[in-house]
């Protein structure tokens, strides 16, 4: 009796171990694909704080910032996030003399920096947490 169970189980064990390894490799692969390190060398960037697999839509782990960046649900933005709680054109971040300024473009659900809803243009500091819709970003500034 035990012999038969043991013989069956040895195959099941091997299958489980390999499925485990494959799923971890796949998760690591998905992580690597999400990081575009080339663009991040010196520029300031937004880093996703949420765990990627808890969100039902596509979002990248890092977004490098440019001279002028729009974020929203619409296709014409530089950062497109298909979160239903984000407006078509939600906010913009502009660079001026090395500093980055965030402006909410009259979105329905608003933009929060460090849990405070912003009303006009705000200068971003290193370590600010920006919340839009269901997601939260960390602003990492580089001089």
């Amino acid at each position: 009796m035990f012999n038969i169970v043991s013989l069956i189980f040895k195959y099941i064990f091997i299958i489980i171990i390999y499925l485990f390894i494959l799923s971890i490799i796949r998760l690591i692969y998905l992580d690597i694909k999400g990081i575009d390190t080339k663009a991040l060398n010196n520029a300031s960037y937004l880093k996703l704080v949420n765990r990627k697999d808890t969100l039902p839509f596509k979002v990248k782990e890092y977004y490098p910032l440019d001279k002028e960046v729009y974020l929203g649900r619409g296709k014409d933005n530089q950062i497109v996030i298909r979160d239903p709680y984000i407006s078509k054109r939600h906010l913009k971040i502009v660079e001026d003399e090395g500093n980055y300024y965030l402006e909410d473009l009259g979105s329905a659900n608003g933009t929060y920096i460090n849990e405070e809803r912003i009303l006009d243009v705000v200068k971003l500091k290193n370590g600010d947490r920006i919340r839009v819709g269901q997601i939260e970003f960390l602003y990492v500034g580089r001089e």
Partner: peptide, 14 residues
């Protein structure tokens, strides 16, 4: 299907 839960549950099953 492949989320953080998947390997965790496999481990438990094992």
């Amino acid at each position: 299907m492949v989320s953080y839960k998947y390997p965790r549950n496999l481990l438990m099953l094992f």
